[in-house]
Design a protein around this nucleic acid. Sequence first.
DNA 1: TTAGGGTTAG
Length: 558
Amino acid sequence: MLRLAGNRLSSSLPWRSNYKATANNITMMSSDGPVNITPNSTLSPEQFRCSNTDHQILFHVLEACKLSSNFQTAIEIHARIIKLGCGAYPSLISLLISIYVSCDRLNLARPLLNEIPSWDLDLISANLIIARFMKIGDIDIAKRVFHKMPARDVVSWNSMIGGCVKNARFQEALSIFRKMLSSNVEPDGFTFASVITGCARLGALDHAKWVHGLMIEKRIELNYILCSALIDMYSKCGRIENAKEVFDSGRSNHVSVWNAMINGLAIHGLALDAIAIFSLMEVENISPDSITFVGVLTACSHCGLVEQGHKHFDLMRRHYLIQPQLEHYGTMVDLLGRAGRLEEAYALIKEMPMEPDVVIWRALLSSCRTHKNSKLGEIAITKISHLNSGDYVLMSNIYCSIRKWDGAEIVRDMMKKKGVRKNSGRSWIELAGVIHQFKAGDLSHPETEPMYKLLEGLIRRTKLEGFMPLTELVLMDVSDEEKEGNLNYHSEKLALAYGVLKMSPGIEIRISKNLRTCPDCHCWMEIVSRVLNRVIIVRDRIRFHRFEGGLCSCGNYW
DNA sequence: TTAGGGTTAG
């Protein structure tokens, strides 16, 4: 076996006459004598001495290091290059970079990429560098490599687009995709999978429809990954009916596609439909996996279907023999907590066979906020080791809700001392293919003046219709910045005002938000939908709210 | 060398 592996290796090398290679050993045949390299071995000083003036030899040795993933020797040669002053050879440095990247030593590659005046990287190595740096969120390096490449192939573009999506730079991903379309490289299924995900995360329906159309036009074959991505995209863009169309037409028996559909229904508050799809899986003999149950349990959680949740949790364990993982306990704690069964939720946490994580404690903390339970809230918050701004806000809100002002004061002081700032909420609206984004009290938009004027008029009208701002929330608010913005200027209200300003009457207004919708804004949107007689759809962090005729599809359960 | 669907919170 070893010999075979060695033969394969040596036959793929262009300079094989210079050395012999097996899977575990490479021997350089230089004019100075043989140089032996084995994976993870080091070069002896003698071996260095025989090649120290010949950068060509170093180049070949590095090539061999790359093939044998001999990272240790590469480092030694790197040191030798520095000592010999061979750094002027881009070919050597480029090779070192690609070795470091393929061995996942990005910290060693980074300074070389920053320092080297010109690169001599092959296409595959450059693509790998883009992908790996994008994976760790180092977008600048990835971009620099991409822009310096003399030629780019479909993988280069895909790595850039996919990388931007992974790093939540959705608009940038779309912009790169547009540039790709005007280049001479054709997008493929990989490109669309990333672009579709970007549209889903943005909730940008116009973009979504355009991208789907393009995919059809370019005759991209629909595999199960693209199919689940499309279902997810339409669901997250508020078009559950389109998601269903894709689901029905795809007729995939891959579990991921079913999971995407179940989750889509869940975020639309259609728990019973989600359960029906799950039952259909049983009929069609498609085995659910652990993600399927996350979807079904989430659907139950967001609609208050406690018994159905219990039933499916048991089904998962007993019938499908899937051991509940942290995320399943997370959804169960969330389900019980939202429904006000806080003690049961806490009991479940104590029963868990594994250590509960912060997600679980935050789910309990959040439920304590909803149901005004400071005792369990205090327990939950002490279990979260690294408190973030949201945790402080929740705890402060719990104290405010039960008028325990001294408790709230202590939390606020802690926030001040630790310099914790509340993250601002953001909402955005897509108009004619452009995404307009707002923060609370935002004054940066060029049409700020007419937008605020319209908003103030709208607030006056809704007050005449009986809208009372939930001022309790202002008291709870711990951020000075937020206080200035006030409830009236929350980001979703600004986005709505902008939509009313720019869109013809009667057309539904669609807003996306990065956080959960605020109860005051939720109540206000209900009244606005009646006053203006138009449909307003708000996608918050976890689900859709469809406001029509004064009511919301969530039935005030969220 | 590149892709999808998954629990909480602000």
